[in-house]
Design a protein around this nucleic acid. Structure first.
Lengths: 257, 257
DNA sequence: CTTTTTTTTGCATTGTTTTGCATTTTTATA
DNA sequence: TATAAAAATGCAAAACAATGCAAAAAAAAG
């Protein structure tokens, strides 16, 4: 049996049973217990389960049902992202033109926007965001054009940036993979970097939305230094010493009071 | 057994089994495992499956945004549209740049394109077409930007036409709501009209794809006279007297022989 | 219909990943 | 703390994948 297939079977079995013994899976799947352990290790890294002595237990995410709609790269830190989203929309005023780039945090923002606002203009390169906001008649939703990245459900490239470059954006809510004082905003999504840079160049009020786990990490490609950013919105788990250090560097951060 | 036949068999088997071992396919199809691997490689590029160690697993994108757009409204004259689609793609050559506007006939064309071509550049304003072609690594798919029309799953407006206006299109396959000698191409989709006009202005070879039911009908908004069109592709049910009359007016039509 | 060209296929070689076993270390519980 | 069960670790065998190449099969050209 294929490894991936085995993983699917374990996942299905676990969802049903909530907890499984490794030895049980070994006989069930006709492989050695070592292989089962390695499988469980992989699935744990995906955030699907928690390994315990003897086997594993299902890690239930509250919003699993909701996440199913968007799926793929599993949404960890979901609750933190929701916290960030709720805080970030406080910065927005009715009628403004907003840019949201591609990412799971901005998706959470889009969900909150639908609830809280009557009239907005939103430009995005993320089809999942379009899916959330597009049906809403009160919002003016503009999708950038461009090449399609089916892994991320986003658009990128010359056409994308061309459309963006004709916009005057009141407030940009940007999500990136990593940020640090030393390296600034960084990301591994090679196509997304140009999009973010273009958005920033067209925006008056530049806001980065990032859950606390992204602070003081860095990724391969540099987007811009942190001094170019007006505000970083994060969640309540940001360690005090980091917040302090950012303050010392004159980088404004905002977390739930 | 022919390569294409083998690919179809693999596809069918995989859809049933969800996951297959390469060795299993080799015995099943009576070819070496190397050939199976090469087959899987091709099918992976088409976005149909994901290769894993030992074989491949079906890529079922049930719950992504784009696939949510499908079904819904049932298509009338589906068989006729498929007939038109199969005929229309005969006009296309490997490597060309093609424009497909929004509509159910162009959706059928997109489905056939995946099967028959290796390398194409396609620009469209229809998200359903993006859903069909987007996962295919062999195709360069460009989505126009613009405002989103959730009724039609299409994009329109200044941004949309701006992106289109930078393209040099080899062949445009245009679907409209109605066409007649007297009124030319007409449509009721107010936003789509501008998109079609822009596409036509950027295209060398202008082809209208229309099932026979659309002939000698008309709709509210005029797009252009028929003399601006190089060819109209239709199905086998077009009444002879209409075909004759179009001929008399020097309007070329093409239907299955 | 035959010859030439192109494509496809299977095989051999080499490199990589996965797996099960043996051994040591850790953990749970009496 | 003692003990058994489970987990981690290192390792070698097996399964699998990538590459280059030559023969075979199709397709194209004459």
């Amino acid at each position: 049996m294929l490894q991936e297939h085995r993983h699917q079977k374990i996942e299905a079995y676990l969802k049903q049973q909530k907890a499984v013994k490794a030895s049980e899976l070994a006989t069930l799947l006709n492989v050695s217990i070592d292989t089962v352990r390695r499988d469980l290790e992989v699935l744990e890294k995906k955030g699907l389960l928690k390994r315990v002595h003897g086997g594993a237990i299902l890690k239930q995410n509250k919003d699993n049902v909701l996440n199913k709609l968007f799926n793929e790269r599993e949404v960890n830190h979901l609750e933190k992202k929701q916290e960030v989203a709720s805080l970030a929309i406080e910065l927005i005023e009715e009628g403004q033109a907003i840019a949201l780039n591609g990412g799971t945090t901005t998706i959470e923002i889009a969900k909150v926007l639908v609830e809280k606002f009557k009239r907005l203009t939103i430009i995005t390169n993320d089809l999942r965001i379009l899916g959330i906001l597009g049906a809403n008649k009160n919002f003016n939703v503009i999708l950038t054009g461009g090449f399609y990245n089916p892994e991320e459900y986003t658009l990128y490239g010359k056409q994308c940036e061309e459309v963006l470059s004709h916009f005057n954006i009141d407030i940009a809510l940007i999500t990136v993979n990593a940020l640090s004082i030393e390296h600034g905003l960084t990301d591994f999504r090679i196509h997304e970097v140009g999009v973010i840079q273009t958005i920033l160049s067209r925006t008056k009020y530049k806001v980065v939305v990032a859950d606390s786990s992204k602070f003081e990490t860095s990724s391969y490609i540099t987007i811009c230094p942190l001094k170019n950013i007006d505000l970083i919105v994060t969640d309540s788990s940001l360690p005090f010493h980091i917040a302090e250090e950012y303050d010392r560097h004159n980088i404004r951060t905002l977390s739930p009071s």
